[in-house]
């Protein structure tokens, strides 16, 4: 990017307090992918940014970029959608935070993928409108597909044979897909996967986002998918997600 003022459509991924009254922010933008910027005086000024820079906010961003600094200087932020229902429900907010942390960890600065922003905005909107838990699974598989990490699920990733219903199948994050029983030896740590879940996930990866509501996976598929996808994501980014731990904590606290 050349030095100058830019305009971008963005979702706020993270916000860190910096110095007396500034904030350091991470955005995912339509035009430039993931970028990081500083908003001077964001914590003090009542008028300039109001609540527009809270994580999950969908905004029109105006920022200044100069080669001298890694951080963009945030000049203006106009709210497109604040997803206000999310902010009054900690369960919804933590699910939304999971989506944005996932995007933040799975993407790199300087690589623009407009579909990622569309996906994120769509799913935040669905959560805001009261979407169900299975949204997170759909989001994970779609994000993996867009970023080119989609695991191989239509057959055994090692011997390329189709998975059969009469013998057990496993999922190996290390191999990047499903493995048949024979190939599962020596594939590192594996998780059992049912044919139904494998089918559900490969279908969810291709389905039109607007029609996702038509897929009604049962609880067993969802639980299996959660375990498999998170293991795979953890393997890809090489660490645990804070928001995943938070979701687990909240789940245990409500029992």
């Amino acid at each position: 990017m050349k030095r100058g003022l830019y305009r971008a459509e963005a979702v706020v991924l993270n916000s860190l307090d910096y110095s007396e009254s500034d904030r350091i922010l991470t955005f995912y933008t339509l035009e430039h992918g993931k970028i990081r910027g500083i908003a001077k005086g964001a914590r003090r000024s009542k008028k300039r940014f109001v609540g527009n820079l809270d994580p999950t906010s969908h905004i029109n961003l105006i920022f200044f970029h100069s080669e001298k600094s890694e951080l963009m200087r945030v000049e203006e932020a106009h709210l497109i959608d604040g997803f206000n229902n999310l902010k009054v429900d900690i369960d919804k907010l933590s699910q939304a935070c999971y989506l944005i942390e996932l995007v933040s960890e799975m993407t790199r600065e300087g690589q623009a993928a407009p579909q990622v922003l569309h996906l994120l905005v769509n799913f935040l909107k669905m959560l805001d409108d009261g979407g169900e838990d299975c949204l997170l699974r759909f989001f994970e598989i779609r994000l993996l597909a867009i970023l080119g990490y989609l695991p191989h699920l239509s057959g055994c990733v090692t011997c390329r044979q189709p998975l059969s219903a009469d013998s057990k199948a496993y999922f190996s994050s290390e191999k990047g897909g499903a493995v048949c029983k024979k190939c599962s030896f020596g594939a590192g740590s594996v998780i059992p996967i049912s044919l139904g879940t494998a089918g559900f996930l490969s279908m969810a990866a291709k389905f039109d986002t607007a029609k996702l509501g038509r897929l009604k996976p049962n609880a067993v598929f969802l639980e299996e998918s959660e375990r498999i996808l998170y293991d795979f994501i953890k393997h890809q980014i090489g660490k645990e997600l804070k928001t995943k731990k938070f979701l687990d904590k909240m789940r245990n606290a409500s029992l």
């Binding site: 993270n14 994580p55 900690i90 907010l93 933590s94 935070c97 999971y98 944005i100 942390e101 804070k242 928001t243 731990k245 938070f246 979701l247 904590k249 909240m250 606290a253």
Partner: peptide, 11 residues
């Protein structure tokens, strides 16, 4: 405060 992005839960 509860902060999912920082991993701060009710506990």
């Amino acid at each position: 405060n509860l902060a999912p992005l920082k991993g701060i839960g009710p506990e």
